[in-house]
Amino acid sequence: MVTGTQREGLGRPCLFSTTLPPSCDCELEGMLPPYLSACLDHVQNLWLEFEPSRKSSRRAATDLLAALAGRTPGLRGLCLECRGEKPLFDAGRDVLDAVHALCGAAGALRHLDLRRLPFSLDDALVLQVAHGCPELRSLFLDNRTLVGSVGPGSVLELLEACPCLRALGLHLASLSRTALEALAAPERAPFELLALRCACPEDARAPPLPDEAWAALSRRHPGLEVELELEPVLPAESVTRVLQPAVPVAALRLSLSGDTVGPVRFAARHYAATLRALEVRAAASAELDAALEELAARCAGLREVHCFCVVRPSVLHAFRARCPRLRSYTLKLTREPHPWRPTLVA
């Protein structure tokens, strides 16, 4: 499906839209719908949805990407999203090969979002993007794969080849101190967003990124926002390495198998000036309630808080009373059927 609907994640707006008709799905394999073939030369920004488990949908998506590679050197933005279930042991080679070819032909590409592809991205794709798309402004590789296959060397080469890059999403293991130093270089264009996902074994084993490197990066780019997403694979010692005081964390998503209270208190004490969105998935406890109340008292700039466990009434009162910029929250006082919907603040 090709859609122009604006979508927003926690703290991160959608970068792509299109005015194309609403579907690229085709039941006749190997054929694109006529209305898509007729307008490919005019496509600049494309959000492409498909179902990898449906052969016709998958074929239509790869055919469309192949056609774009041959006819659309003016493509500026591409976002891919897989819907439904991914077939077991599916490496997505056909899809990734199509993206690889497109990035080799779309020299004007400025925005590439692969967060919603459930396949392991690799160094070859990143290097193709680096050398085929020198005008790149944003690249999101922080997808939900369980294997981190993009090495720090490829990311460093990407930063050197794309001097105008201003937003980057990665798994933690793909980032290095050298990359932080490259981003902090005096000649670097303003850098605005760094999204880090910690969700695979490589992320848990990643070496620490020194606090002084984060401090230098923040001084060089005072408007920088960092998004951190910490998944259950991270042991407590890895969480401690990731949560450095100088990181300008704007959005923090905690879904840990171990202690959550400590990270919430750490955020309250070190990210009060920058934190705008918090998401917590943990078991309910009096200690967590107290930590959330402390965070509400310290983080006056908070705009979103979503806690997926029952909290006591004083937690809700604390956020409503102490966070004047709050626009959306999920703070349930009693257990309700899922999915829990957020409350919008008028």
Rank of each mutant, 00 (worst) to 15 (best):
V126F: 03
L80M: 08
L112Q: 03
C82M: 12
L78M: 08
A101M: 07
D113K: 01
F119R: 00
S120P: 14
L88P: 07
G77R: 08
L75P: 09
R115E: 03
L139W: 10
L112K: 01
F119I: 03
H131M: 02
C133D: 08
R144C: 07
P118N: 04
L136Y: 09
R144H: 11
R83I: 15
D113L: 01
C103S: 14
G77N: 06
L78S: 11
L125W: 07
A105S: 15
T145R: 05
L136P: 09
L139R: 09
A108C: 04
G104T: 06
R93H: 04
R83N: 13
A130C: 12
E135W: 03
G84S: 12
V129L: 04
D94Q: 02
R93A: 04
V126T: 14
L112W: 01
G104E: 01
T145P: 07
L117I: 11
V99Q: 15
F140H: 12
L121D: 00
A106Q: 03
R83Q: 15
L75H: 06
L136E: 06
A91C: 10
K86W: 05
V99D: 11
C133G: 08
C103V: 15
R76G: 05
R144V: 08
C103D: 05
A91W: 06
L96Y: 12
A105G: 07
C103L: 09
A106P: 08
L78R: 03
N143F: 00
H100P: 15
L125G: 05
L146K: 12
V129G: 04
A105W: 10
A130N: 11
